[in-house]
Nucleic acid binder design. Structure first.
Lengths: 355, 355
DNA sequence: CTGAAAGCGCTTACAG
DNA sequence: CTGAAAGCGCTTACAG
């Protein structure tokens, strides 16, 4: 026996309304869903009698039953591997969530946040306990970095419609995403530096390399090549900020590098600290640009030459793509790259291109 | 005919698994829900055969169908009358949402944000279009101010379980809430002022009076009475900051008021501006305390004597109350008042109590 | 230990 | 214009 969620009194059902109005449930259904393309046509009188019964009984349809019957839920899932609302301050997902809400509201969908997938402090799993919890939703938006792409592949195998915010790659299946144009934006900064006289430009990134990081480096290399600049094997460092030391700086300066493109603000700040320790400064002795915007600390980035990631717009676009897929308007892989906006800042200066 | 959400291939159902494994759906169900108190017991072999079929077909249960059959959805609704994620900066609901997520995660519930209720720019409605959209959830948390209490009353009439964050009152029905102890906190500040020599203490609030505002004033009046202070008809202003002018200040100072309890930071700052215009200052010429924390601007409040509203804890407690109701652990009205914490600040100074 | 069947509350062809 | 019935995909007493 099913337990009514309304502990106590049994909920009023369509059948109750039908009985009171002296009609069949089909008629009640047709009156309550006037735009459904059912053949049913009802007289004014009957309609009014039904509506009266609805009012008297305080009936409101069971949406779960509607979902099951219609095969449509009007729910969009939002899945994050970490908590959606992390700390008091650092508000990782906020811009994306804001974009998602803006775009989804008015489209007649509710947003389901998968908080139940949380097991202790470990990252959440989509397929925890064997069943795909996302299945309550018609489709889902995925935020944040996943541990590996196997869950995404399994989702695709199941035919479950979803879009990630940020580019994701799988060797086996096609994924849908709304991503930032890291490659283009990075290439743009290379170009910008070149116009200001820089010839020895280096890329400084972390050890962990995902799609995002790869895009930056790809953009860097292709721009260097286009400009006919030397992008030899030594022009790209893969090192985390903590590991950067005086030797690293020595090496960089020794190579004659004049402009560093730092993957994160952490890299840039660390480089500046090391320069200061040698009595040097940014941008007088070395220009530095940051390839993005930190998620948390939006204050300290402002003085740096960098580009802004359109996080809100990525959220909106992800919803657009997902809805288009659910509508059937879009069949194949849906992939959008959104432009980042360049922020001049003051850490990249013009130099004499004594080449 | 129902349209499969997976446009294209039909989704694998329990029946497919049963067929492949050569058992009935009841057996599949029992194996997949081992802790359900069904009489069904299955042999190791059969169980393995079923699990193999599940794997082969890539089956995952349809949660909507489970919900309908069980009468339980494992979804908690979160309803706000305004957008959940308002502006880039001002993050109204963030602390509460954070509390809600913290408490709900691990309890095995997902969080449903009712974004579909949005109609243009008007405030959202629970009963938009006749049906109670909240019904997809087992119960709901309501955030923010509602236009009127009629929707809440109708929800209660329907027997739908919900808890508001913030005290709500209806003359007709009992409501459940997790609220801040505005009355107690306000009384505490009166007491604090009294200990520092203040005798003429005034209350300065807005024109709109809801439960929250009422609680502050109640706390003020009762504390004044307890201390034997004069809380006559003139001790409470109901005026919005914009309407406060030089005449208002004249009147206040003329009454010999030494301490003002301002409902909002807006009131306090306006009062200070008016004082400055007369060459006076806070707290030298007048002490002012603020009865709460602004939702947005958490920076500028810090210098003021005020109390902090435990928004995160209110979110957590609302979830606790709701879950307790859903469990049946709690039957009657669930109402919790949470203490606010006093922040001394520097705008309330000790004076000679030349009474 | 297993199966057939009813039921959760709707929607929707299909007959009258 | 209206009604009886099947079906959405599960769960769960109830018989064997």
């Amino acid at each position: 026996m099913a337990i009514s969620s309304t502990s106590g009194r049994r909920r009023v059902t369509q059948a109750d309304v039908a009985r009171l109005a002296g009609v069949s449930t089909a008629v009640v259904s047709a009156i309550l869903n006037p735009n459904s393309a059912t053949g049913v046509r009802v007289s004014q009188e009957t309609a009014e009698r039904v509506r009266k019964a609805v009012r008297e009984l305080g009936y409101s349809p069971n949406l779960v039953a509607q979902s099951l019957a219609r095969g449509k839920r009007n729910i969009l899932g939002v899945f994050t591997y970490e908590p959606v609302f992390p700390s008091e301050r650092g508000n990782f997902f906020y811009p994306m969530l804001r974009g998602i809400e803006m775009q989804v509201s008015g489209a007649g969908y509710d947003l389901l946040l998968f908080t139940s997938a949380q097991t202790d402090d470990r990252p959440r799993q989509i397929f925890a306990g064997g069943s795909n919890r996302l299945g309550v939703a018609d489709g889902a938006i995925l935020l944040g970095q996943e541990p590996d792409s196997s869950e995404l592949e399994r989702l695709v195998d199941e035919g479950f419609p979803f879009v990630t915010v940020g580019r994701r790659h799988s060797g086996r299946v096609e994924l849908n995403w709304a991503a930032a144009g890291y490659a283009e934006a990075t290439a743009g900064i290379v170009q910008h530096g070149h116009e200001r006289g820089h010839r020895r430009i280096a890329f400084l990134g972390g050890v962990t390399i995902r799609e995002q990081q790869l895009d930056r480096e790809t953009g860097f290399r292709s721009a260097m090549q286009t400009l006919g600049l030397d992008a030899g094997p030594d022009c790209c460092w893969h090192i985390d900020p903590e590991a950067m030391d005086a030797d690293w700086l020595e090496n960089a300066l020794g190579q004659g590098v004049t402009l560093i493109l730092a993957e994160t603000l952490g890299h840039a700040e660390r480089a500046e600290d090391l320069l200061r320790a040698r009595g040097l400064s940014v941008p007088d002795d070395l220009s530095i640009a940051v390839l993005g915007t930190p998620l948390e600390d939006s204050k300290s980035i402002s003085r740096w030459t960098h580009f802004e990631v359109p996080r809100e717009e990525m959220g909106r676009e992800a919803v657009r793509l997902l809805l288009a897929q659910l509508d059937g308007r879009l069949r194949g892989p849906a992939q959008t790259t959104l432009p980042c906006s360049f922020i001049p800042g003051g850490t990249l200066r013009r130099i004499d291109s004594a080449h």
